[in-house]
C-alpha cells in the first residue's frame, strides 16, 4: 500500500518534498561547515598557555576573557530576567485588555528589539560610562546588555504565559486560590520551558555581543572586577583578529567560546529542569 502511494505521488508533492529535504540538508551542511572550519583552524592553535591566569602579549591568555564572559552573562541575566519575567506577568495576568500602558509597553519592546546593538552601546557609553561617571566597567557593560536583552526575555515570557491553557487558571481559581498563588504556583511553572528558550537566546546574544561592550565595558584583558574594564571572549576575538598578530589564537578562542556556549546552555537546561520539579 505504502509503495503504491509513493509511485502515485503528484509532481507538486514531490517537488515540495524535495525542497524541504534540500533546505534541511543545506542548513545542516552550512552549520557543520562553520563549526568544522572553526575547529580545524582553532584546535591546533589551542595552547595550555592560553589558560594562564594572567594575560600578557606573549601568552595571549584567554582565561580572563572566559571569566569575564561568564560573569557578564550571569550579571546581565540576574538583572534582566526577573524584570522581564515580572513585566510579562503584569502584561498577561494582571493588566486589563485594551489598557493603554500595555500597548505602550508592547510597542516599546518591539521597537527596542529591532535596534542594532551599537545603539545600545552608545547609550550605555553616554549614560553609564560618562553621565554617571562609572568609566569602562563590567557593571556598565552588564547593565547595557541587560537593557538589550530585556525585550527578548519579555516577549518570549509573554508568549510562554499566553500558551499556558486557561483551564489551569480556572482550576486554580475554582479551588479558591487567589491570583498571586495561581500565577506563581500554576502558570509560571508551566511556562518555564518557554521562558528558558528565551533565556538561552538571550545568552547567545550576550556571549556573541561585541559592539555594545567595546563602548561600555572596554577592552582591557584583565581579570574582571565590577567597576573595572574587562573583555569577553567575543571582544577578545575581535581584538586579536583586528590587531592581526594572533589570528591563530583568535580561532582557538572561537573554539573555547563554542564550548562555553554549549556548557552554559546545558547548565540553563539543567537548572530549568530542577526549577520545574520543585
Amino acid at each position: 500500500m505504502k509503495s503504491r502511494q509513493r509511485t502515485k505521488r503528484k509532481p507538486l508533492d514531490l517537488a515540495l518534498a524535495a525542497v524541504t529535504y534540500i533546505a534541511a540538508g543545506l542548513t545542516v551542511a552550512i552549520l557543520l561547515l562553520l563549526i568544522g572550519y572553526v575547529v580545524i583552524q582553532g584546535v591546533p592553535n589551542l595552547k595550555l598557555s592560553m589558560f594562564s591566569p594572567r594575560y600578557t602579549s606573549e601568552n595571549v591568555s584567554a582565561f580572563p576573557a572566559i571569566v569575564t564572559t561568564v560573569e557578564l552573562t550571569l550579571l546581565s541575566l540576574i538583572i534582566a530576567v526577573p524584570l522581564g519575567v515580572c513585566t510579562a506577568i503584569y502584561l498577561t495576568e494582571y493588566a486589563r485588555r485594551g489598557n493603554r500602558v500595555v500597548g505602550l509597553i508592547r510597542i516599546t519592546a518591539e521597537t527596542l528589539s529591532g535596534i542594532p546593538s551599537i545603539v545600545y552601546g552608545l547609550f550605555g557609553m553616554l549614560f553609564f560610562v560618562t553621565a554617571l561617571g562609572w568609566g569602562f566597567s563590567l557593571i556598565a557593560g552588564a547593565l547595557t546588555l541587560a537593557i538589550m536583552i530585556l525585550p527578548l526575555i519579555m516577549r518570549t515570557t509573554e508568549e510562554a504565559l499566553l500558551s499556558v491553557p486557561d483551564s489551569y487558571r480556572e482550576g486554580s481559581f475554582g479551588l479558591g486560590a487567589g491570583r498571586l498563588r495561581t500565577v506563581f504556583r500554576i502558570v509560571l511553572p508551566a511556562a518555564v520551558p518557554g521562558i528558558l528558550s528565551g533565556v538561552i537566546l538571550a545568552i547567545g546574544r550576550i556571549v556573541g555581543e561585541t559592539a555594545a561592550l567595546i563602548y561600555t565595558a572596554g577592552t582591557a584583558a584583565e581579570m574582571p572586577t565590577l567597576t573595572g574594564s574587562a573583555r569577553t571572549l567575543a571582544v577578545h576575538m575581535y581584538t586579536l583578529s583586528s590587531e592581526g598578530l594572533h589570528t591563530g589564537e583568535a580561532y582557538a578562542t572561537a573554539v573555547i567560546l563554542l564550548v562555553l556556549v554549549v556548557g552554559i546552555n546545558a547548565l540553563a537546561a539543567f537548572s530549568a529542569k530542577k526549577l520545574t520539579r520543585a
Binding site: P165, S167, Y168, E170, G171, S172, F173, G174, L175, G176, A177, R185, I186, P189, A190
Partner: peptide, 26 residues
C-alpha cells in the same frame, strides 16, 4: 465561597504536577 462550592470542568484540567500535589493544592 469557592472552598465551600467546588467546581469540576468540562475538560479534565489536572495541573502539570504530581497526583499528590494536585490533590494537595487546594
Amino acid at each position: 465561597l469557592r472552598r465551600r462550592v467546588g467546581m469540576v470542568f468540562q475538560k479534565p484540567n489536572p495541573f502539570p504536577m504530581s497526583v499528590y500535589d494536585n490533590i494537595a493544592f487546594g
